[in-house]
C-alpha cells in the first residue's frame, strides 16, 4: 500500500507556503497601522501599531485620491460586469450544451479561439478611439462594456451545463410542452447554480483587479480603486502609511468574498481545471 501521510519535509514546505502567502498581507496591515517614521525605520517594525483608524481616515479624506469614489466605482463596475457575464454565459452555455442547432460546433470553436487572444491588450487602440468618438472616456461605461465579452465564461458554463443537466431532463421537459426559455429557467438554472457562483466570483475578482484599461480610459478624478491607489502612490510615494491604508481598504472586499466562498472557489477551480 502507498503511504500518503506527509513527511516532515512536506509539512515544513506547506507551513512555509502558508506563511509566505500570508506575509505580504500581514505586512500591509503592519505598515497601515503605523506612523510614517516607523515605516522607514531600520530594522523594520514587525507588529501592528495603533494608527490604522487614523490612516484610513486620512486616505478617505484625501482629496486627490477620490478613494471612496474609487471603491464605489469598482463595486459598480465589478457588479455590473459580473451579473451580465453570468447571465450571458449561462444562456449561451445552455444553448451549446443542451440544444441542437446547425453550426453549433463552429460557433463553440470561435468562443474557444477568443479565449486565447488577449483582447484588452491587443485592441486597446481601437477600443480607446471608439470610446473617444462615443464621448465615453472617463465614464464607467467605457470600463464595463469591453469586459462583457468573456469567452471563458461561455466555455465554463457550457462544460458545467453538459455535466450538470442530463439531456434526458431537457427532453422530458420538452415533452411536457415547456418552451426553451422555460426549460432554462426551471430545469437548467437550478442545476448550474454552483457553476454560476464560480464564474461570478472569478469575474468579480478579475474586474476588481483590472488595471491597464481603466488606467487608459479613466481620469484620476473618477477612478476605480486600483487607479486611486496608483494616484496615491504617484503623488505621495514616500507616505507609506497612507498608501498602505489604501491598499488594505482595496482588498477588504476581496478577502470578504474569499472567506465567505473559499470552499466553492477552491472546488470550482479544481473542477474547472480538470475539465478544461
Amino acid at each position: 500500500m502507498t503511504n500518503w501521510s506527509p513527511t516532515l519535509i512536506t509539512r515544513v514546505m506547506l507551513a512555509l507556503a502558508v506563511v509566505l502567502s500570508a506575509f505580504p498581507l500581514y505586512w500591509m496591515l503592519v505598515i497601515a497601522s503605523r506612523t510614517n517614521s516607523d515605516a522607514v525605520s531600520v530594522p523594520p517594525p514587525f507588529l501592528p501599531g495603533g494608527n490604522l483608524g487614523e490612516n484610513i481616515v486620512a486616505v478617505l479624506n484625501n482629496e486627490d485620491a477620490h478613494f471612496l469614489l474609487g471603491l464605489t466605482n469598482s463595486f459598480i463596475v465589478a457588479s455590473v460586469v459580473t451579473v451580465s457575464v453570468v447571465i450571458i454565459s449561462t444562456l449561451a452555455g445552455f444553448s451549446f450544451a443542451s440544444l441542437n442547432f446547425k453550426g453549433r460546433n463552429v460557433l463553440l470553436l470561435a468562443v474557444l479561439l477568443t479565449m486565447a487572444v488577449p483582447l484588452q491588450q491587443m485592441g486597446v487602440v481601437p477600443l480607446y478611439r471608439l470610446m473617444v468618438s462615443l464621448e465615453w472616456t472617463g465614464t464607467l461605461k467605457a470600463v464595463i462594456l469591453p469586459y462583457l465579452l468573456n469567452g471563458f465564461g461561455v466555455f465554463l458554463m457550457t462544460q458545467y451545463t453538459r455535466q450538470a443537466v442530463p439531456m434526458e431532463l431537457v427532453e422530458a421537459a420538452r415533452v411536457d410542452g415547456a418552451a426553451t426559455l422555460r426549460i432554462w429557467w426551471s430545469v437548467v438554472l437550478p442545476a448550474v447554480r454552483p457553476g454560476m457562483a464560480v464564474l461570478g466570483i472569478n469575474t468579480f475578482m478579475l474586474m476588481w483587479n483590472d488595471f491597464m484599461w481603466p488606467l487608459i480610459v479613466l481620469t484620476p478624478d473618477n477612478p476605480t480603486v486600483q487607479i486611486a491607489i496608483t494616484s496615491l502612490n504617484a503623488r505621495f510615494s514616500t507616505n507609506y502609511t497612507l498608501i498602505f491604508a489604501g491598499t488594505a481598504l482595496s482588498i477588504i472586499p476581496l478577502i470578504a468574498v474569499f472567506v465567505a466562498f473559499g470552499r466553492q472557489i477552491v472546488g470550482g477551480l479544481m473542477e474547472g481545471a480538470v475539465k478544461a
Binding site: P24, N209, F211, T247, S250, I251, V257
Partner: peptide, 9 residues
C-alpha cells in the same frame, strides 16, 4: 490567498 488580493496593492 495571493490570487484574490489586488495586483496593484
Amino acid at each position: 490567498l495571493p490570487l484574490v488580493t489586488s495586483v496593484v496593492a
